[in-house]
Simulated scan of single mutants.
Amino acid sequence: MDAVRAVAEPRRREILRLVWDAELSAGEIAERFDVTFGAVSQHLKVLRDSGLVTLRQEGKKRFYRADREAMGPLADYLQSMWAAKLDTLAELAEAAERVERGGPGHSEGASP
């Protein structure tokens, strides 16, 4: 499977995001999902076979990390996509905080 088709699946994109800056064990990755370890393991295999993650084995543990260099331009696209989502989340959090403080858009004191 090519890299673009591999990242088309939302769980695989989330796995990539998790291992973007840090190496995680398969178990640590699986803990973050509401599917079986086997399902996460299959996603990891697709990512590995597509060259999107590297695998390091230490004893019985398997550790995964995004291989940004191998991704080429896809790495920039994924990073910008996650940054845009974080920007949106930050804007929503700031808006909620303004409402809690009684800032613009707050209707406290308005007549019914």
Rank of each mutant, 00 (worst) to 15 (best):
V53L: 03
A8Q: 06
G102I: 00
A84F: 05
G109A: 04
D67Y: 06
S80T: 14
R11W: 01
Q79R: 15
A22M: 09
I15M: 01
V19G: 03
R12N: 02
T36P: 07
R65K: 09
E100C: 08
A6K: 02
A39Q: 14
A8K: 04
A39C: 12
E69I: 06
R12F: 01
W82Q: 05
S107L: 12
T54L: 11
P73Q: 07
L18A: 09
A39W: 15
M81F: 11
A70M: 04
F37L: 13
R11Y: 00
P10F: 09
K45H: 13
A90P: 00
G59S: 04
V99Q: 09
Y64R: 02
E97N: 08
G59M: 04
T54D: 12
L16D: 03
M81D: 13
V35T: 11
S25V: 03
L89F: 15
L78W: 02
R101S: 15
G59A: 04
I29A: 00
G109F: 06
G109L: 04
R101K: 15
S111T: 15
W82L: 04
A3R: 14
A3P: 05
H43C: 11
E94T: 15
P112Y: 09
A84W: 03
D34S: 14
W82P: 02
S80V: 11
H43M: 07
R11N: 04
V53E: 00
A8F: 07
W82A: 03
M81Q: 13
A70E: 08
A8C: 04
G105F: 10
L55R: 12
L89S: 13
R68D: 03
L18M: 10
I15T: 01
S50R: 13
S41H: 12
D49P: 01
D87F: 03
S50W: 12
R5Q: 14
E28C: 05
M81G: 09
H106M: 07
L47H: 01
P10H: 07
L55I: 10
G38V: 07
L52V: 05
D21C: 08
Q79Y: 10
L89E: 15
A22F: 08
A26G: 13
G51D: 04
A8W: 01
I15E: 00
V40P: 07
G105W: 13
R48I: 03
E14K: 12
L18F: 08
M71L: 00
R17P: 01
A6W: 01
D2R: 08
E69D: 06
H43N: 12
L18C: 05
L55T: 10
A83W: 13
S41F: 10
L52Q: 02
E9D: 09
E9I: 02
D21T: 15
E100S: 11
E23H: 01
D76F: 02
E94Q: 15
D49H: 02
G102M: 00
S25M: 05
L86H: 14
A26F: 10
L44T: 14
E91M: 02
M81T: 13
L92I: 15
A8M: 07
P112N: 10
V40I: 14
A95I: 10
R5K: 13
R62K: 07
W82G: 01
L52N: 05
E108H: 08
E23G: 05
L44C: 14
E69S: 07
